[in-house]
Design a binder for these strands. Structure first.
Length: 279
DNA sequence: ATTGCTTCCTGAGCGC
DNA sequence: TGCGCTCAGGAAGCAA
């Protein structure tokens, strides 16, 4: 499931592939996954001017004044295909055909992913509500501690809330909490200032490493060349039986997500200083 | 205001 | 081999 590192991987690859190129035709295969909320004809999108990540959203700006806002949710994919390559029909929702050859294919196996068109500068509801990016300089130990202060919600749910911090999903939430030795059910407000500082540092470290690895492929994440990422080789708890120290892991449900944690390394009180290696 | 539950959907994996 | 069941989860929407 694409989270911040996977989406960043796709955005970086798209920048190298389609920036400055013109879309000749937009082929909408499945209209229920695509919506035009722009005052423009989608058959004259024009040239790709910008490609950005906003939380887990991908925003592609065109010189016609339209932007494509894409959210891959769980099983969405963007795949580059040469004009001659056969298209896998299963889950194909739309295709951007480029004037100088090649296509960007938008897939969504389970139909949750979205491709919506807006006028550049429109306030897109999902994006407008996003909290700070984990790498935003405005996100400091102080501001994070202020956000967490007095919140009773489980720290795992806090990390998954896109309106607070944008980009973390289930896999990285589990991995970050294991690395700082905090129980996923510990209330966000219960973390000491020292732990909050550690949380911020480890969050950035884990996400950076995952970006360097071009993401995590535990199920079906693929980059635009249909290749897997490599961070699954560094996972310590997600879908594992035991932690790196050999303790048996537990799996519980938090906010409707499978949550993996080590009952030995991750204390509920969130007070124990972590001495374990991050990688 | 904050928290939590339900819904959407299909392929993979499992037991029989 | 094949059937039916369970599980996977991001975010909107609504209830408490």
């Amino acid at each position: 499931m694409p989270e911040l590192p996977e989406v960043q991987t796709i955005v970086s690859q798209l920048q190298g592939k389609i920036l400055g190129r013109s879309v000749r035709q937009l082929r909408i295969v499945c209209p229920s996954s695509v919506e035009n909320r722009a005052d423009a004809d989608l058959q004259s999108l024009g040239k790709v001017q910008s490609i950005e990540r906003k939380g887990k959203f991908i925003v592609i700006g065109f010189d016609s004044g339209v932007m494509a806002v894409i959210h891959l949710r769980m099983t969405g994919k963007l795949v580059w295909a040469a004009a001659s390559e056969p298209r896998k029909p299963s889950g194909l929702r739309a295709e951007f055909c480029f004037a100088d050859g090649g296509s960007l294919l938008f897939y969504s196996v389970r139909g949750f992913a979205r491709l919506d068109f807006w006028n550049s500068g429109d306030k897109v509801p999902g994006i407008a509500k996003l909290g700070l990016d984990p790498f935003d300089k405005g996100l400091t130990a102080d501001s994070l501690a202020a956000m967490m202060h007095s919140r009773k919600v489980a720290i795992k749910s806090f990390l998954l809330n896109q309106e607070l911090i944008a980009g973390i999903g289930n896999i990285y939430a589990c991995e970050i909490l294991y690395r700082i030795g905090v129980h996923p059910k510990a209330s966000a407000g219960s973390l000491s200032k020292k732990k909050v500082r550690e949380l911020l540092a480890v969050m950035r470290k884990v996400l950076s490493k995952a970006i360097d690895c071009c993401g995590t492929s535990v199920s079906d994440f693929r980059n635009i060349d249909d290749k897997t990422g490599q961070f699954q080789n560094f996972l310590q708890v997600y879908q594992k039986k035991s932690c790196p120290k050999g303790h048996r892991l537990q799996k519980i449900d938090i906010a409707g997500r499978g949550t993996y944690f080590c009952p030995v390394c991750q204390s509920l009180e969130a007070k124990k200083a972590s001495s374990q290696l991050v990688f």
